[in-house]
Amino acid sequence: MSTSRRSFLARSSALALGSAALPWSLPARAAGQYPDKAVRLFVPYPPGAATDNLGRLAAQTYSEAYGQPFVVENRGGGGTTIGTRALAASDPDGYSIGMVDSAFTINPGLLGDKLPYDTLKDFKPISLMVTAPFVMVTHPSVKAKDLAAFIALAKAEPGRFTFGSAGIGSAPHLAGEQLRQHAGIDILHIPYRGGGTVFTDLLGGQLHFAFGTVPTLLEHIKSGALNAIAVTSAERVGQLPDVPTFREAGLPGVDTSPLFGLIAPAGTPDEIVAKLSSTIAEAILHGSLNARLAGMGFQPVGSTPEAFAKRIADDVAKWTQVIKQGGITPE
């Protein structure tokens, strides 16, 4: 074989090896350099909502960790579908991520084919940041101090007891629906436009009970204005150590604990998702965010992408069944 022929084959082999290695080396290199410009963080709510506040904490954490701006972009409306659809349509390059809450897992069962994206296929979970357990509270006029007594009263007077929520298909509504289905009681749901008025009417005695987050209701519980019946978390809540879980009270099927987490468009490189996940998880589990989130009434989680993906799939299946069994349709 001639020298020129051997030289040509050697160069060809080197190019072939380099080309074969390229798809494997580029993502790792990209993740190492990521981010090298601003990143958008979509929040499907207007400024000031709990999901927005958590999104801004995540953006601040990432900006400080990477030295690049993470810019919150509020896209409210459509029951969170407008902002989430915008994220799904974004380039999957790591420069668009988003915050989601329980509406993300409720909407598939509530909206069905009208949902403008596929919750399980169009996104890559990054991390479940926190959960926010509900506490069931009653007005003092309800002569029941525990769950068993409340269920007995509701069975004795079907259709009498009312509860309110921020709207049809909201997480507090579905918590009440879980109670109705698992306890076998006839209770009346009254949907409001927003959660604030619910508790005003509950305190005034226009409603009999409601579900809300512990920070929202803690002051009213401690003052005796409302009675705490049970919490929806798997374990008791630190701020209410004497209030049992629904499982302890004999009704484990009531387990609504709203989730808040980060996702990216499907197709985002795994290496970038892993980097984003480990950074936020470290801050939540071991960094400055841990005490801050707990002080806000959240239960810090900081999950892996895989654990968050499982939670999303489990919740979609659960809420779809609750909605179907309850015959719930959107407003």
Rank of each mutant, 00 (worst) to 15 (best):
M1L: 12
T3E: 12
S4I: 14
R5N: 09
L9T: 03
L9V: 04
A10V: 08
R11T: 13
S13L: 13
A14P: 04
L15P: 01
S19M: 15
A21K: 03
P23N: 11
P23Q: 03
W24G: 12
A30V: 15
A31Y: 06
A31S: 13
Q33Y: 11
P35R: 09
D36Y: 15
K37C: 07
L41Q: 03
F42A: 05
P46N: 13
P46H: 11
P47Q: 10
G48H: 00
T51K: 00
D52E: 11
L54Q: 00
L57Q: 08
A58G: 04
A59K: 03
E64P: 01
E64H: 05
A65T: 14
A65K: 14
V71W: 08
V72G: 00
E73N: 07
N74M: 12
R75P: 01
R75E: 05
G77D: 08
G78W: 01
T81H: 06
T81Q: 13
T81L: 03
G83F: 06
T84R: 00
R85V: 02
A88W: 01
A89D: 15
S90I: 04
S90Y: 03
D93R: 06
I97D: 02
M99N: 09
D101N: 15
D101M: 00
I106P: 04
I106E: 08
G109D: 06
D113P: 05
D113A: 15
K114V: 08
L115K: 06
P116T: 02
L120R: 13
K124V: 13
K124H: 14
S127H: 09
L128E: 10
P140L: 09
P140D: 12
S141F: 10
A144L: 06
K145M: 11
A148F: 00
A149D: 12
A152R: 12
L153Q: 11
K155C: 09
A156M: 09
A156D: 13
P158A: 02
T162H: 08
L174T: 06
A175V: 00
A175D: 03
G176C: 12
I185R: 01
D186Y: 09
I190R: 14
P191V: 05
Y192G: 00
R193I: 07
T200E: 14
T200C: 02
G204N: 12
F211T: 00
G212A: 10
T213H: 03
S223Y: 09
G224Q: 08
N227M: 07
V231M: 05
T232A: 11
S233W: 04
A234T: 15
V237Q: 08
G238Y: 06
P244N: 00
F246N: 08
R247K: 15
A249D: 07
A249Y: 01
G250W: 02
D255I: 08
L259A: 01
L259E: 07
L259K: 05
G261Y: 01
A266Y: 02
D270F: 03
D270L: 14
A274N: 12
S277K: 03
E282Y: 11
H286D: 13
S288K: 14
N290L: 09
N290K: 15
A291F: 04
A291M: 09
A294W: 01
G297E: 02
T304Y: 07
P305L: 04
F308H: 10
R311I: 12
D315Q: 14
V316S: 11
V322N: 00
V322I: 15
I323T: 03
G327S: 05
P330K: 09
